[in-house]
Simulated scan of single mutants.
Amino acid sequence: MSDTSTGRRVAIVTGGSRGIGRAAAERLAADGQAVVIAYASNDAEAGGAVEGITAAGGTAIAVKADIADEAAVAELFDTAEREFGGVDVVVNSAGIMAMGPVADFDLAVLDRMHRTNIRGTFVVNQQAARRVRGGGAVINLSTSAEKAAMPGYAPYAASKGAVEAVSLILARELRGRDITVNAVAPGPVATELFFEGKDEETVDRIAGMNPMERLGTPGDVAEVVSFLAGPARWINGQTVYVNGGMV
């Protein structure tokens, strides 16, 4: 099966079974792209994401893959090429968030987070650099927490600082290929991961940090991903903050 004859773009979305990744996968499918959802472990969530997209008239498949495993990521791209003829868009949304003060942070947790957030981003971008077709786009998810410099976010923000570095440098390494590479840095977004462990007072305080006085939604971020994945050909090598004006 090949989409080269139809002109339909093909997107890989890592972390596409839930949260921001799922919203991005659904939006790209609604835009007419065939979507390959990469997920780490939850078969039911991945299946639900695919079913939702196909029920809405879109095209999607799910592939289980550890994004830090270079063989698994190579097979992920192989599957996209085999099923749909190529890869035009890569959205790297998979990530782990762990928080705590620098002085007390568990280094084993730091290593696990960095394996996914840093090594995983590098591995996915390495395959993207080799395989994304001309006219394509690579979009990596970062965080506004790095710029906001909020206490407790240092381990996570440090890993996302690496994501931004890879994104901005890869954009320049792909000179002449007509491929854009950008990072998207959301602020607090109303996802299951965000609400975990937070009381109502904390949620309200964080929601009030931006002048819009609300949390972001996965759809807010997916809207920007859609723009960068399609019409935004003159935005390249940038970090785009999507946070309602928080910072």
Results as ranks from 00 to 15, higher is better:
residue 91 V to H: 07
residue 137 A to D: 07
residue 46 A to L: 05
residue 146 E to M: 12
residue 56 A to K: 00
residue 110 L to D: 07
residue 146 E to I: 11
residue 129 A to L: 12
residue 70 E to M: 14
residue 43 D to T: 09
residue 139 I to Q: 05
residue 67 I to K: 08
residue 90 V to W: 04
residue 115 R to Q: 13
residue 66 D to T: 13
residue 130 R to C: 03
residue 55 A to G: 09
residue 47 G to S: 06
residue 41 S to Y: 02
residue 140 N to P: 07
residue 138 V to W: 00
residue 133 R to T: 06
residue 95 G to Y: 00
residue 64 K to V: 03
residue 31 D to M: 01
residue 28 L to S: 13
residue 92 N to A: 15
residue 70 E to A: 15
residue 51 E to C: 00
residue 102 V to Q: 01
residue 36 V to P: 11
residue 74 A to F: 00
residue 148 A to F: 14
residue 43 D to V: 11
residue 81 E to A: 10
residue 132 V to K: 04
residue 84 F to I: 13
residue 32 G to Q: 04
residue 97 M to E: 09
residue 107 L to V: 08
residue 34 A to F: 03
residue 72 A to D: 08
residue 119 R to S: 12
residue 30 A to V: 02
residue 100 G to I: 11
residue 53 I to H: 10
residue 121 T to W: 04
residue 90 V to T: 08
residue 30 A to D: 12
residue 100 G to D: 13
residue 108 A to L: 06
residue 57 G to L: 11
residue 114 H to Q: 15
residue 128 A to P: 05
residue 115 R to E: 08
residue 127 Q to Y: 06
residue 150 M to E: 10
residue 42 N to T: 09
residue 102 V to A: 15
residue 59 T to I: 14
residue 117 N to L: 01
residue 130 R to G: 06
residue 111 D to E: 15
residue 138 V to R: 00
residue 94 A to Q: 03
residue 108 A to G: 14
residue 135 G to D: 15
residue 137 A to T: 13
residue 83 E to D: 09
residue 127 Q to W: 10
residue 140 N to C: 11
residue 90 V to N: 09
residue 52 G to W: 04
residue 121 T to L: 06
residue 79 T to C: 07
residue 45 E to I: 00
residue 29 A to Y: 03
residue 39 Y to A: 01
residue 152 G to F: 12
residue 149 A to F: 03
